[in-house]
């Protein structure tokens, strides 16, 4: 745990070139979104495939405020998070009442609507041409400094998510995922809980969008294709539902893998789909479960048979029989 934290902090010193650092920042941005989304998808079982819409909203709010109106980037970052939360609330209010497939389809529709509105409101968002996004002021203007900012935000978000997950809240979320009826019967306020978690995931998506936009330095509607939303979703499912570390590893691996293995990048979505299908069919608990499955396969826990000899005289005494 400590070694991992030290590694993350020391990464700017270890990285050989700026590209690796860029990749690390990208992973950080994705993780900020996925940490929030994981609470909604992995813990609560609300399968939102359209979070890319919230990411786009955060990115555009940041670009418009900080780039065009000259607002302080840190304020703009906060505003992006707030706007993400607000849009999450607006999306969640009607759609979280709907059952599984209806909810997934309404988030998909939301993602399409957002890109449609971005194209339609060309005066505000630059339309299909896109917007230039400013960086952050000193001392965050270098790649290493920006990495530290991303690291700080993702640490805070991870801590929040972890705190939610391991306390009573997290238990309630898992109860909602496993059986909504049973959860309601033991007094979990279903709708309010789902809405709160969804708004939280909206805030993290907005923050992630702002940082993502600043990292990319230029955004167009094509930056936020639906496939990106699918990617977030796959990261969580592959990592394993109901865990924090699993989706984190999923994010890292799925971001790095297409960069490292060129043929995979060409296959793109096909690869993600195949991976998702294999995980759903073979390991519905996620890759994290693979370790324990393999361990049970190769080093099965021996069930030792213990002979139980009845103590007949004591039994007889207990039953009140006379000793022969």
């Amino acid at each position: 745990m400590l070694a991992g934290a030290l590694f993350l902090i020391g990464l700017p010193l270890l990285a050989q070139d700026e590209y690796q650092l860029h990749l690390a920042c990208l992973i950080g941005c994705y993780w900020i979104l996925i940490a929030g989304l994981n609470l909604a998808v992995g813990y609560t079982g609300q399968l939102s495939i359209g979070h890319v819409g919230l990411l786009a909203i955060g990115a555009y709010v940041f670009a418009i405020l900080a780039g065009r109106n000259g607002v302080n980037p840190y304020l703009a970052l906060g505003a992006a998070g707030g706007m993400g939360g607000l849009c999450g609330l607006l999306l969640g209010l009607p759609s979280l009442r709907l059952p599984g497939f209806y909810f997934a389809m309404s988030t998909l529709a939301f993602a399409l609507i957002v890109s449609e509105l971005i194209l339609a409101q060309g005066g505000l968002t630059g339309g299909g041409v896109g917007l230039a996004v400013p960086g952050f002021p000193k001392p965050v203007d270098t790649p290493a400094g920006f990495y530290c900012l991303v690291l700080a935000v993702s640490a805070v978000v991870s801590l929040l998510a972890w705190n939610v997950a391991r306390h009573m809240w997290g238990r309630a979320l898992i109860a909602v995922r496993d059986s909504a009826v049973a959860a309601a019967a033991v007094g979990v306020p279903l709708f309010r809980l789902k809405l709160t978690v969804f708004v939280f995931s909206g805030v993290t998506a907005g923050l992630a969008g702002a940082l993502f936009a600043s990292l990319q330095s230029y955004i167009t509607p094509d930056t936020f294709v639906f496939d990106l939303g699918l990617f977030f979703f796959v990261c969580i499912i592959i990592g394993g539902r109901g865990s924090i570390l699993g989706p984190f590893l999923g994010t890292v691996v799925l971001t790095v893998l297409p960069e490292a293995v060129a043929p995979l990048a060409r296959l793109g979505n096909f690869f993600y789909g195949l991976l998702l299908l294999m995980v759903v069919l073979l390991l519905p608990e996620g890759i994290g479960r693979l370790v324990s499955v393999l361990r049970e396969r190769f080093w099965p826990v021996r069930l030792e048979s213990v002979a139980v000899a009845p103590d007949l005289p004591r039994l007889a005494r207990a039953l009140g029989h006379k000793q022969p």
């Binding site: 495939i49 979505n269 993600y272 789909g273 195949l274 998702l276 299908l277 759903v280």
Partner: peptide
């Protein structure tokens, strides 16, 4: 699973 298949 159907989402994965549709993507593929």
């Amino acid at each position: 699973s159907t989402l994965a298949l549709a993507t593929m």
